[in-house]
Each structure stands twice: as structure tokens, then as C-alpha cells.
Nucleic acid binder design. Structure first.
Length: 485
RNA sequence: GGCCCCAUGGUCAAGCGGUCUAAGACAUCGCCCUUUCACGGCGGUAACUCGGGUUCGAGUCCCGAUGGGGUCACCA
């Protein structure tokens, strides 16, 4: 059996779209699953779009996610170069070969002429298709123009009758009427190949066996096949992937800040969670498992379980999955990742980050939500007296006042300000007072945090705050209670 | 608009003619646990787009309608 060779062929835009990342992932998984090769090729035939540092973004993202390529621009390989602009001289001869075979032809129509004809067509509400105007030019006439240096493009000569059928792994048999096929340009006026042409030539030259790409290429694939056939090359297996959507009618988009890998990383999503979730949009293992490491994905990945209907990228589920990954991560790693987020609001506050991290790890959904959750430690927030009212805890401002009066001297008597000392002393006082735990602990926590919910109970918060700050906050809250009594 | 693709709960989805009075997960709701929140546990609400066929039998096959998406560049 032939070695499986897949490829990821992004154009360097400076950003990695999640849809693209998923395409890369599936290509990677399939290659690894079959002991094949995963190739990275940069498609930069459009010189006007060149973006500085864009290839690095691609490298960093793929490597960061654990998708190492076997051949690529930076590491080479037997089929290089792997950057299309470095291969630009390779394409014209292939196009000329097609012209000789009669499968393609020179076209001297100018852009302006074409635009005019296109506009006229649209005005009549018709679909514009190149009319093969230059197809029947005599050989001599063509040569004459070529010799005279008249600018030209080379076009594919598509059939106008019949239909083309091909097989796609996820969509099955696909049939297109030939009269909808446009004579696409193969070589542009500047001598560079078009994306479509370079793609076919490169895929063949690089021995790509499985072409996995977005389904937006579904309807141009018949033209690709025309090319393969004209050259007498083997047609690769096609695996068209559905679109990753934001909702039923929109793709993930740049505008909403939810399209790029970097957007998510900056918000504090873990790349492992992102990859894991992304793998599940449009594919499933056939059983109930949802958590996978890269190696596990390689193990279970099956190209035949790819879905053929578009999937919506569910932020809710991503959040949930991210929460799970964070909860399971190494505590030291959490501390390391969480520290910059703590620093945003707690820098210079002398808070025990290690303890804070322990308390926060199980409550963190996405790191960018961390600062808002811990900010109260830096400064006591303004709060409403209503916070003291909690039916289940059997407390209200009245009860709170009493409870705090009970607890204050106890706290003052604690020598060594540790959580367990705090706990033991206060619990003992509560027990001997005959009060309910909640009726004391809820008010205490409110009094020193000003928050309905905090990343820990009264003792944890008191510990984090330290003795001095805790007592200061407590006294202030007691005054507030007294004033409003 | 032409052509192409798609169609199970709010979302991801299992299902590949009978075992579907349709699995699981997220979200949502309720209860339990608990010094808050969260975690966790238990339970609930919630779907085969519609209409024709084919068949003894259809979520599963066919046709049509509807809805959604894609594509129609000397962009990739």
C-alpha cells in the first residue's frame, strides 16, 4: 500500500483561523494514524498579501499544539521547496504542456475587457462565464502575439457538455454539470500560477495521497480533476471538511474576535482543551468518550466518522471543557499560568498566591475571568446590606450584627493566623453560642469580602486577607451594620 | 439567480429498515452535598423540518417543498 501523505497548505495571513487549525489537525491525525507523512506547505502565490512574520504564526501554532510536520519549509524534505513562491518557475512549463495537449490555451483578453463583459452579463442577470474567446485563435496568431510580447494568461479548456462525477470520502458521489465550469486561469499575467493550479501541481509533485480541505472547494474540484486527467496523474482521495460555524448562519469571524487561535489563547483557554474540543466539532469517535490527548486522538481518529453537516462551535461546551482541563492540570502549572492574571489586580498586595491558586483552580473556567474573581482581595468592594440576607443560612442584617459581635473577639484572640486556627476557634465559639454555622459564617464572609460568592469560605478568605486586613474590614462592616440598624 | 452540499432536542451528536415509546455530552431546570460559589451526585424539560412515495415495517431508502450553507476572480 502506498504511504499516506497529507498536507496542510495555509496561506500566510498572520492568523490561524480555528477552521484552518481543525483542518490541520485532521490532516495530521490521519497521517499519523496511518504511519504516513504530514506535510506543511506555504501558499503565498499572492504577493500582494504578504504579511511579515506570518509563517512564524503558522509554525508556532502548529508546534505549540503538538502537530509536528514531517516535511516543510523550515525542515526541508525530499519534495521541496515547500513555499510556493520559491517554486514559481516550476509551474509555467506544466501549463505549457497542457497547451500543447490542447487542454489549455493562451488568452489575451485584458482584465478590463473581462470586467466589462462580466458587468454586462450581471446587468442582464446572467451568470458570467468566460466565453472561450481566445480558444480558437490560430497557432500562428497566438505565436505572433506571444512574440510581440502581448500580455497573456493561460486558461484551462473546460468541456461544455456532459457532467463530471467524483467521489468524496465524506460527501460520497458528487456530480456537476460541465456547462457550469468556467475556463479558469492557470497562469496569471504576472507569470505566477493561480492558487488552484499551483495546488494541483504541488499536490501531485509532493505525492499527496489525501487532500483534506474545507468544503468551499467542493464545486471547484471537478476542475482540479480535469487538470489531473489532462496530465495523466492519479487523482488523490478527497476529504472535504464542513465549515466551523459561529451560529447557524455565520462562520466564526474575525470581527467577533472568536475566529483565531490566538484570540482564545489570549483569553486564557488551554491549547489542549481547544484542540480537544475542535476535534469534536465535525467528528466523533463513535462512543461516549470526549477527552483525548493528541496521542489518543491519533489512535481513535477515523476519517469515515467525519460529519457531513456543518457544526456550530459551542462556546459553552468549550468553556466547560476548558474548566475540566484546568481542574485536572498540575497545581504548579496552574500557579504559573494564574500568576499573571492574579497580578493584574493583586500585584504588590502580599497575598499567598499558592493558596489562592489552590482555591481558584477548581473554579476557573477561563483565565481571563480570574481577575474579576479575586479583585475583592485587593480592595473591599462597596456592597449592599441586602447581602447579609440569606434565607437558607438563616441570616439577615440583624443576625449578622450579632454574629459579627460574637466572632470579633474570637478572631482578635487568635495568635497564629492560620486557616485551621481560624476554623477551630470560630467553630468552637459558634458551637457554644448555639447558633447555626451558616448564620455566623455567611455574615463573616460577606463582612470581609463584600461578595455574594468568593473562591473560598470565610476562613480561606480571612487567611488570604491576613489578620490586619481582616480585622479592619470586619470593623468597618460592623460600623456599617450599626449605622443602618 | 445558476450549480452544489446539508437537514435528529438551544448546541455537539449516536443512529447506517424492525432492538427508537431515539443514547451520551454541553446548556437549562429541580433536588442532594455544603460556611458562599464552584465541583460532585441524582432527577426533570427538550429532537427525528414538512409533504408524498417504496416497504409487512422508515429517523434510517427515493422524490418534492421549505430552511440553512457553499460556490460562481488574473484571492487563496
Amino acid at each position: 500500500m502506498k504511504e499516506v501523505r497529507t498536507r496542510f497548505a495555509p496561506s500566510p495571513t498572520g492568523f490561524m483561523h480555528l477552521g484552518g487549525l481543525r483542518t490541520a489537525l485532521y490532516n495530521y491525525l490521519y497521517a499519523k494514524k496511518n504511519g504516513g507523512k504530514f506535510i506543511l506547505r506555504i501558499e503565498d502565490t499572492d504577493q500582494e498579501r504578504f504579511v511579515e512574520g506570518a509563517t512564524e504564526v503558522i509554525y508556532d501554532t502548529l508546534r505549540g499544539c503538538g502537530m509536528d510536520w514531517d516535511e516543510g519549509p523550515d525542515i526541508g524534505g525530499d519534495y521541496g521547496p515547500y513555499v510556493q513562491s520559491d517554486r514559481k518557475d516550476m509551474y509555467l512549463p506544466y501549463a505549457q504542456q497542457l497547451v500543447e495537449k490542447g487542454a489549455a490555451y493562451y488568452c489575451f483578453c485584458t482584465k478590463e475587457e473581462l470586467d466589462e463583459r462580466r458587468a454586462a452579463c450581471e446587468a442582464k442577470g446572467e451568470v458570467f462565464k468566460y466565453d472561450k474567446h481566445c480558444l480558437n485563435m490560430s497557432k500562428e496568431e497566438v505565436q505572433q502575439k506571444l512574440d510581440a510580447g502581448v500580455p497573456y494568461v493561460i486558461r484551462l479548456n473546460c468541456p461544455t457538455e456532459g457532467e463530471t462525477t467524483y467521489e468524496d470520502v465524506v460527501f460520497g458521489k458528487l456530480t456537476f454539470p460541465n456547462d457550469t465550469l468556467d475556463d479558469m486561469v492557470l497562469i496569471k499575467q504576472d507569470g505566477m500560477p493561480t492558487y488552484n493550479f499551483a495546488n494541483v501541481v504541488d499536490d501531485h509533485l509532493m505525492g499527496i495521497t489525501h487532500v483534506m480541505r474545507g468544503m468551499e472547494y467542493l464545486s471547484s474540484t471537478p476542475k482540479y480533476n480535469l487538470l489531473y486527467n489532462a496530465f495523466g496523474w492519479d487523482i488523490p482521495e478527497y476529504v472535504h471538511l464542513t465549515t466551523v460555524m459561529r451560529d447557524a448562519q455565520h462562520k466564526l469571524s474575525k470581527r467577533d474576535g472568536d475566529a483565531y487561535y490566538s484570540d482564545f489563547i489570549e483569553k486564557g483557554y488551554l491549547k489542549e482543551a481547544l484542540i480537544n474540543y475542535l476535534a469534536l466539532v465535525g467528528w466523533n469517535p463513535g462512543d461516549d468518550r470526549e477527552f483525548f490527548t493528541m496521542d489518543e486522538l491519533i489512535d481513535v481518529f477515523d476519517i469515515h466518522r467525519l460529519n457531513n453537516s456543518p457544526g456550530i462551535f459551542d462556546m459553552n461546551k468549550l468553556d466547560w471543557m476548558n474548566t475540566q482541563y484546568i481542574a485536572k492540570m498540575d497545581p504548579e502549572k496552574y500557579l504559573e499560568m494564574g500568576t499573571p492574571w492574579f497580578d493584574k489586580v493583586l500585584a504588590g498586595k502580599n497575598i499567598d498566591y499558592k493558596r489562592l491558586a489552590e482555591l481558584m483552580q477548581g473554579r476557573t473556567e477561563v483565565f481571563n475571568r480570574v481577575p474579576a474573581m479575586v479583585e475583592f482581595l485587593a480592595e473591599m468592594p462597596e456592597y449592599e446590606l441586602e447581602l447579609y440576607t440569606h434565607k437558607k443560612m438563616k441570616t439577615n442584617p440583624e443576625v449578622a450584627k450579632e454574629s459579627l459581635e460574637l466572632v470579633k473577639p474570637v478572631l482578635e484572640g487568635i495568635q497564629d493566623w492560620t486557616e485551621s486556627n481560624l476554623h477551630d476557634a470560630v467553630m468552637e465559639a459558634i458551637a457554644s453560642s448555639g447558633k447555626k454555622n451558616g448564620a455566623v459564617l455567611w455574615p463573616l464572609r460577606i463582612a470581609i469580602s463584600g461578595m455574594a460568592s468568593t473562591p473560598g469560605g470565610a476562613f480561606e478568605i480571612a487567611y488570604l486577607l491576613g489578620r490586619e486586613e481582616t480585622m479592619a474590614r470586619l470593623e468597618k462592616s460592623m460600623e456599617k451594620l450599626a449605622e443602618n440598624a
